[in-house]
Computed example of a mutant assay.
Amino acid sequence: MKRKLLAIALITGSLAGTAAASSVTTGNLLAIDQTAGTSGEGVLFIDDQSSGIRTLFSDFGNSTQGPTGVDPNAVAWVPATLLGLLGAGQILVTDGSGGTNKEGALYQIDPIMGNRVLLSDFGNSAQGPVGEYPSGVLVAPGLLNGLLGGSGVLVVDPYAGTNGQGAVFSVNANGNRAILSDFGDKTGPQGQYPDSMAYLPNLLGLGGSVLVADGGAGTNGEGELFKLDPTTGARSVLSDFGSSAQGWVDPNPESTPVSVTVSPAGQIYVLVQELSAGGGGAVVKVDPSTGDRTLVTDFSDASEGPTGIAPDNLAWLSSGLLGVTDADAGPEGDGELFTVDPSTGQRNTLSDFGNSQQGALGSEPSGLTIAQ
């Protein structure tokens, strides 16, 4: 689950077909499971986009693959076109409770063997301002610092910043950090729980904005979608999820936006998770100009496909579908990876993390991205 709990029960996931994949290739889905693997310390799976077959790629409890993890929660791919120093095709994973004093870590994983190195220790003040619980990582080739030889890497932490209202860090190729935007300061609209990001290029393909989903800001605390200037860190509100003036509002006041993605055509999709019992969640489409929202799919509506319980992350797939992880769905409750047709809202199960016939077993899939 994306929200940090006071105590996290680590459930050791049984592993079937644990041989590591030889490499990550273009089109592979990369899925983080927070509590699978050795000692329940998390796993990075490769998931076939067509068949849903899973292969264990990096076991965060296996020290032979590098520093071990605690609570890996989000993943990003470093594209081959990025003009930075990380190297093309690398994988980045945030760990909310890794690093010094369990204040978070950002790992870099090689795409051949799944071996890890610690890129940035969010508890080490020698690398910059410390974090509390980094929960999302974004690699944006269009960011200015990427074009100037930096890494183009941003990390969001919902508990960092002034009054613990969240912050977005920039991280360079040496792992050194700076705060790009402090959601608790008064230089712009304030946040409450920013915890996921996506990159929205402008129409000319140059520059653009960082979209940040905040699960606690806005009208009635039902969340907001911010636009963030990647150069200055200046914030504006694109969509207030508690305001009916901008369209769809979840009738469940406990709901919260937890993930955002952008299609190649610049269409914005936001995943909303209902935290109350029997939730289900939804995907909504957000107009990039007005912030107006329309419902795409309701995970509690069985007529649209298999239902969800705690959808956690979404990503745009090369098939033109949306991929959505759900930490608690599936017949065994070990999680599912759904696909959603953005035109019809119809859902299908791509990968059941409790089904050993689809590969290595999981227990709490969360972060999701595509290698491209």
Rank of each mutant, 00 (worst) to 15 (best):
31 A>H: 01
221 G>A: 08
283 V>C: 12
342 P>W: 08
235 R>E: 11
207 G>T: 06
312 D>M: 12
260 V>D: 11
346 Q>E: 11
247 G>A: 13
219 T>Q: 13
31 A>D: 00
86 L>P: 04
52 G>S: 11
47 D>Q: 14
299 F>T: 01
140 A>Q: 06
243 S>I: 00
140 A>W: 15
46 I>F: 00
159 Y>D: 10
282 A>K: 15
75 V>C: 01
105 A>D: 06
190 Q>K: 13
86 L>S: 03
197 M>D: 07
82 L>T: 14
181 S>I: 03
155 V>E: 06
306 P>C: 06
339 T>H: 05
335 G>E: 12
256 T>G: 05
275 L>R: 06
179 I>E: 03
106 L>Q: 13
116 R>H: 11
11 I>Y: 11
120 S>L: 06
149 G>H: 01
141 P>T: 05
350 L>G: 10
92 L>T: 03
99 G>Y: 07
31 A>N: 02
279 G>L: 05
6 L>W: 08
224 E>Q: 15
124 N>F: 02
268 I>A: 10
368 L>R: 12
232 T>P: 14
70 V>S: 10
131 G>D: 04
257 P>E: 04
223 G>E: 04
189 P>F: 08
113 M>R: 15
138 L>A: 08
62 N>G: 02
3 R>I: 11
110 D>L: 03
54 R>A: 05
242 G>W: 07
227 K>L: 13
57 F>P: 07
337 L>M: 13
87 G>K: 02
82 L>I: 06
44 L>Q: 04
205 G>H: 05
92 L>H: 02
324 V>G: 01
120 S>D: 09
63 S>W: 00
63 S>T: 12
316 W>L: 06
160 A>N: 01
143 L>Q: 03
215 G>D: 05
212 V>W: 03
135 S>V: 07
346 Q>M: 12
238 L>S: 13
221 G>V: 03
62 N>R: 03
227 K>A: 12
319 S>M: 00
87 G>Y: 01
51 S>A: 11
228 L>F: 05
325 T>I: 02
357 Q>G: 14
242 G>E: 06
77 W>Y: 15
172 N>T: 07
214 D>N: 05
122 F>I: 10
173 A>K: 04
159 Y>Q: 12
